[in-house]
Amino acid sequence: MPKTTLSVSAIKEGTVIDHIPAGCASRIISLLHLTSQQKQVTVGFNLPSKSMKRKDLLKVEGREITEQEGNRIAVLAPKATIVIIKNYTIVKKYIAKTPKEIQNVFVCPHPQCITNHEQAETRFAVSTHGIHLSLRCVYCERTYQDSDIREYC
């Protein structure tokens, strides 16, 4: 297998999330609750990138990000590359796909939305407008940009 040229040191087992828009890595950490599982997480902020000028990068030691989790990432980082590593070699590499609907990932920003008052799975319909995503709450029907989302379930 070819060696990857990541500017943070290689990991033995786990996941590398590459091509995250600069500044978005910390939001992905909250989204996937990466710090709550006592796994080693390495973050690279504002790394140089050919395709994006500046990017963020995340390495999670000892945890394989599932495809479903990968697709959630796509809402914040539409071009993120997810690389699964076992024994220092890449076993799987894919670009996150934006799902049509995203369930129980974000808290609806509308305070009067029923999902903020009852225990209910949040559901957002996702649509893409160029590089921007819009998220429409299935319940209160308000539409948000990905940047409006501040809290994760």
Binding site: C113, I114, T115, E118, C137, Y139, C140, E141
Partner: peptide
């Protein structure tokens, strides 16, 4: 009829 948005869908 309910005062909260999205209550009918729920």
């Amino acid at each position: 009829r309910h005062p909260l948005d999205g209550s009918a869908r729920l």
